[in-house]
Design a protein around this nucleic acid. Sequence first.
DNA 1: CTTCCTGCAAAAGTTTTGCATTAAC
DNA 2: GTTAATGCAAAACTTTTGCAGGAAG
Lengths: 150, 150
Amino acid sequence: MSAAREDVVHEIAARRLRGVGHRYTGQRRRLIDILARAGQPLSIPEILHGRRGLAQSSVYRNLSDLVDAGVARRVLTGDEFGKYELSEDLTEHHHHLICSSCGRTTDVTLPRPLEKRLDRVIDDVAHAAGFADVIHRLDAIGTCSDCARR
Amino acid sequence: MSAAREDVVHEIAARRLRGVGHRYTGQRRRLIDILARAGQPLSIPEILHGRRGLAQSSVYRNLSDLVDAGVARRVLTGDEFGKYELSEDLTEHHHHLICSSCGRTTDVTLPRPLEKRLDRVIDDVAHAAGFADVIHRLDAIGTCSDCARR
DNA sequence: CTTCCTGCAAAAGTTTTGCATTAAC
DNA sequence: GTTAATGCAAAACTTTTGCAGGAAG
């Protein structure tokens, strides 16, 4: 995919964090790695699971800082937990397939022309309602193959 | 808009609740009224605010029952609270403009042809990934006019 | 009159905060 | 050396649950 190479992602993350007065510490670098390798949004319990040396409170604080710096974003899945992923300019514009039964979330992309048309229409509608700097969030919610079997 | 008249909404709500073994009580009827008149998703604090005779726990329970019966749905706004609205077959298919700064949420609709194309493409993509019974959720997130002024 | 719903209070579960210690620059 | 980040524990906040009393069918 068109995602930036990992070292470039780290450079960008470091720059943006410094831009908002934060340091690029080991734990923050590690979180970026975890999110970059996941390829799907992760909840804090998922991030903590099987990894040592990460205090829950620090992970919450750091993900929040990464969001503030524009390096990550919080995804709403209807799961009980919030999930996090790298921001789109570090990966690529994509959408989510969310299983309404188990919360499983998969990244998907749509054809370029459809995306462009969507963006135009949404921009028009949003401006008419007085909204500025609008991005869109399009997710599909259904039943994944595992849950359909039950 | 093409929304059903209020009394029809109540009939449908009553039928669907009975269908899952629930009664159509005064409080449930009242919640339907509140959601129907709001024209935008409401959080539980918003529902409780300025209304007497609604116990918080019962509102949580009843909204959950309304969702189970297919009369309402839970909307994720990034606000700290979950918000609820009537299900789309009782109103009409629409989307949300969400202010990332203050959480203000406004309903909007998109052109029919775009919606149809979206549905087709999402259906294809979802099926390819093994998902069934997919609906789409498209929201626009930006800055509302009030927050832009600050 | 039996079953489900309601309200209150308490519990559970996710996220945030205070503070002393440690690491970054 | 100064300022910010970390880990632990405790607190805050949203949502769920237990239970006794009340309403629905």
